[in-house]
Design a protein around this nucleic acid. Sequence first.
DNA 1: GGCCAGGACACCA
DNA 2: TGGTGTCATGGC
Length: 195
Amino acid sequence: MIRMKPLTLYDRMLAEYGPQRWWPADSPYEVMVGAILTQNTNWRNVEKAIANLKATGCLSPEAIMEMKKTGLETLIRPSGFYRQKAERLKLASEKWVEVTSNTPDLRNEWLSVKGIGEETADSILLYAFDLPYFVIDAYTRRFCAHHRLCRFDDYEDYRCYFESRLPRSVPLYKEYHALIVEWGKRNKIRSPRDP
DNA sequence: GGCCAGGACACCA
DNA sequence: TGGTGTCATGGC
């Protein structure tokens, strides 16, 4: 196999798959909700949960903060882990109304929310706040291993790998991550050390 | 009917 | 700090 650079792989995927135009959401807040609901969960199940929130007029931070936890659990049940995620959505919604894209140390603000780890935080920062953080998920690690780009244990090492090799561009980061996910869905490739 | 999906955290040694 | 268990639904 010919070993390629990250930007070359990006160009090839963009040519083959076309622009993905991520994140699939109608608003930045919906991005945040989706980022939490999709934790270790098939996106199709997330779509059902978000549809329930929309149908009941509950897709807003105010509505989610105010509603009973059990009611929220019922709406998001299709996304799995619904008890945990209901709690996480409430905590994240509280954070949502208190920060802006100009809040200092915004990444750590999100990481301080129980239930929001590095991947979820970076998804929110990139797709909801338009800030240049490259998102590392299970597909990204698989992508790196498959193309012999790199292999690390730590999330930060992967993020640094991409951010140090790509132009610092929010649209590029968005599209690249989306293309990696599309690649992952088309190529069900797993390795022994796969997360 | 088993396996897996766009993680995160608690607990233990 | 590293390994393991838990959380849960729905599609294939």
